[in-house]
């Protein structure tokens, strides 16, 4: 294993694929043993990652319609901010956010969620 890759793994960062693997205004899933992570791509190729569980009743956010920097949950149409994971008011709740970065068209994802989203690991189902 190359040194750089090794550091990444230690920090729980992984290369999950190319930006172009995700449709514009779409999302795909990274399957982990701790649950699915939804990776979103906006119209201008920004990439965001959230726990694939809607704060409402656990709907798979990866299956929703992406618009601007939001996704609409496919189950009951809550809107979630992609950049913060927070539900768009008046709804309340949040989906845990995972750090991502894009280098040379490749998506690097950290499997350690950001702090600050209380329910991040305990979604209501």
């Amino acid at each position: 294993m190359q040194q750089a890759e090794k550091t990444m793994v230690e920090n729980n960062w992984i290369d999950v694929g190319q930006v172009s693997d995700i449709p514009k205004l779409g999302a795909r899933v990274v399957r982990t043993k701790d649950g699915d992570i939804a990776v979103f791509r906006t119209a201008d190729d920004e990439v965001f990652a959230l726990r694939d569980q809607c704060p409402h009743k656990g709907g798979p956010l990866s299956q929703g319609i992406v618009h601007g920097k939001r996704v609409a949950c496919p189950l009951h149409d809550w809107k979630i901010h992609l950049d913060s994971g927070l539900a768009v008011a008046p709804d309340e709740g949040c989906a845990a956010r995972f750090p991502v970065s894009v280098e040379d068209g490749r998506i690097l994802l950290s499997l350690t969620p950001d702090e600050g989203c209380p329910n991040s690991n305990a979604p209501k189902v």
Binding site: G17, V29, V30
Partner: peptide, 11 residues
């Protein structure tokens, strides 16, 4: 096909 397969499986 992308719709029906995960982007990546880890672990």
């Amino acid at each position: 096909a992308h719709e029906y397969s995960p982007l990546k499986r880890v672990g």
